[in-house]
Amino acid sequence: MFIEERKARILEILDNKNRVKVDELTEKLQVSESTIRRDLQDLEYAGLLKRTHGGAVKAENTGFEPTMDEKEEAYKEEKLEIGKKAAALIKDNETIILDAGTTTLQIAKSISAKNVTVLTNSMVIALELTQKRDVEVVVTGGYTRKETLSIVGPLTDKIIQNFRVDKAFIGANGITIQDGCTTPNMSEAHTKSIMIQSSKEVYIVADHSKFGKVCFSQIAKLDEINGIITDKRVEPQVVEKFSLQGVEIIY
């Protein structure tokens, strides 16, 4: 099979399944893993797909949402860096909201302040924080999303509306000057917006790859947030553009 034929076959398989693994492609196309990985790299460069840990997905659209496993594997070091920086903003005796997500999970792991109360809609974060003696955890009710292990819905939103906190740390899948902060799922977006309304200070936490992307549902406009905490790989011109809009980039 010629190279272009193989690449066309990869796209055909992906078109039928939305997601595909490297080992699956090696078996179907009878070539080595290194060959498949080179093909996937070429196809990603051409904008025809997006590589993930161990495979690939269709090229992103506004409704695309990676799985929790895929999120955990992406930009691990950057998320750790963001988590430490965000946790440093949390002071003793404060009340905060931690949105569900792999980046906010790193914040939970890095909290060192004393007598902190955390309101969260994340089952994973709630479990993580039970190990910290100086943190009290309040978990929202609602229905669970398997994709993000989050709790969302009308009950979740109603519970959050009963609280007022000092700071909120919210994840986002896309950030642009024109569209603000966005995420693929409507329920997630609505819950995030309620969290923002219940907070005195709001920080978006997102690695550099989220800048310039737009997803289906808007979380917040830029004038609704206090800052964006990201990693050091964010481009200087991006920082400058957001600064001109009055948005602080913290990294």
Rank of each mutant, 00 (worst) to 15 (best):
E201Y: 02
N173R: 14
F216C: 03
V239A: 03
V205R: 00
H190Q: 13
T156N: 13
S217M: 14
S199K: 05
I194S: 03
G212T: 11
P154L: 09
T182Y: 10
P236I: 15
R145V: 03
V138W: 06
L222I: 07
I159T: 06
D207N: 09
V239I: 01
P184H: 04
I177G: 07
I204N: 01
S193N: 15
A172N: 12
P236D: 15
F169T: 00
R164D: 06
T144F: 15
S217F: 13
V202M: 07
V137T: 05
R145W: 05
L149F: 11
D157S: 08
S193H: 15
A220T: 05
G153N: 08
V202F: 08
I160T: 11
A189Y: 03
I151H: 10
D231L: 08
I160H: 08
G142H: 01
K192D: 06
N226S: 14
K213N: 15
P154A: 10
Y203M: 10
S198D: 12
K192Q: 09
Q161L: 04
V165T: 05
I196E: 03
I170C: 00
K158C: 12
T144A: 14
N185G: 09
Y203D: 06
T183Y: 09
A206C: 14
V152R: 01
L149H: 13
K158V: 12
S199G: 06
Y203G: 03
I219C: 15
K241I: 06
V152K: 00
E188Y: 02
R233A: 15
P184N: 05
T156S: 13
G141R: 01
I177V: 10
F216I: 04
G142F: 02
I160D: 07
S209P: 02
S193I: 12
K167I: 06
R145F: 05
S198E: 11
V152Y: 00
R145L: 03
Q218M: 10
H208W: 10
S199E: 02
H190N: 14
K167L: 05
S187G: 14
S193L: 13
K210W: 02
E235K: 02
S209Y: 00
T183E: 12
F216L: 09
K213D: 13
K213S: 15
G180L: 05
A189R: 02
E224F: 04
Q197V: 13
D231Q: 08
V234R: 04
S150K: 12
D223I: 15
G212K: 12
G141D: 04
D179W: 04
V139A: 04
T148V: 14
S209N: 00
S199V: 06
F242Y: 13
Q237P: 09
K221C: 10
E224W: 07
P184L: 06
P184A: 05
I196F: 04
A189F: 03
F211D: 09
E201R: 03
M195N: 04
I175F: 07
N173W: 08
V205Q: 02
L149K: 13
V234P: 03
S150N: 11
D157P: 09
A206Y: 08
V205F: 02
A172S: 13
H208L: 12
I175R: 07
G153R: 06
T156A: 11
V202H: 04
V205E: 00
V139I: 09
K192C: 06
I175D: 09
Q178A: 14
D231E: 07
V152G: 01
I229K: 08
K210E: 06
K213A: 12
